[in-house]
Amino acid sequence: MPVEAVRDETIGVPDGEQARQTMTTTTTRTPLLAMRQICKRFNAVEALVDVDFEVYAHEVVALVGDNGAGKSTLAKVISGVLQPDSGLIEMEGETVAIPSPSAAHDLGVATVFQDLALCDNLDVTANLFLGREMTGRALLADAQMEDAAKKILRDLSSRIPSVRTQLRDLSAGQRQSVAIARTLIGSPRIVVLDEPTASLSVAQTAEVLTHIQGLRDLGLGVVLISHNMNDVRAVSDRIEVLRHGRNNGSFDASSASYEAILAAITGATHQGYRSVPRFA
């Protein structure tokens, strides 16, 4: 396979142009991902009840809620780890099923879970391409992978000095940025980040938040799950609140106050879905 083609496909600054056109031409654009009336039960526990959720291109949507509100369950449904009991999932207007994580990957959904799933004994490049190694003449195309890794890290303006560093030598923040960079391999359209800033220092948080803005600028849809209201309000465009597995409010991140969001999370306010724009 010609190297150039491989590189383009792999790094694939994913249809930023297309996303841009969608944005400029119309306000009634189709969401990248739309989930309608999703239900999921674990025996007696109702994890998700009639949840609606949408992600558009070039948008960071934060998913917030108390412990056990169903944030991670919803993320697992998006990434194919769990199957919903009922409900509809659409990608760019077409109904799809996401029966497995690899199916999610093929649909362009990349997920970073809390445990990151990286290999300590491999270097940065090997981790980025883990399971998706480039090959040339039956051998691994190390040079190409290294070049691609450098480019991806540069695109994210990451501070990792060398792509040959072993993962065990990196700080928690640097490992998180490797995990985020890893999602960019294989042209994703949607990136799901589960608690990316938990247990990071301020400088590391700053880097991860800058990466998230970078993903948005590349035209991707980003789902950000976090407990930290500062981080959520800093980088997201829209904030969706879940409470006891149900939608409990949707907020415009640039204008919603900290108090209003907290009230929705704790249940001090019971908001029907999309209550905010009704005033407009």
């Binding site: 948080t205 700053a206 800058t210 803005q213 209201m229 309000r233 991140a253 640039s254």
Partner: peptide, 10 residues
């Protein structure tokens, strides 16, 4: 040098 994104009305 480091940039940290902040929420509105921080």
């Amino acid at each position: 040098d480091q940039v940290l994104p902040l929420p509105s009305e921080h």
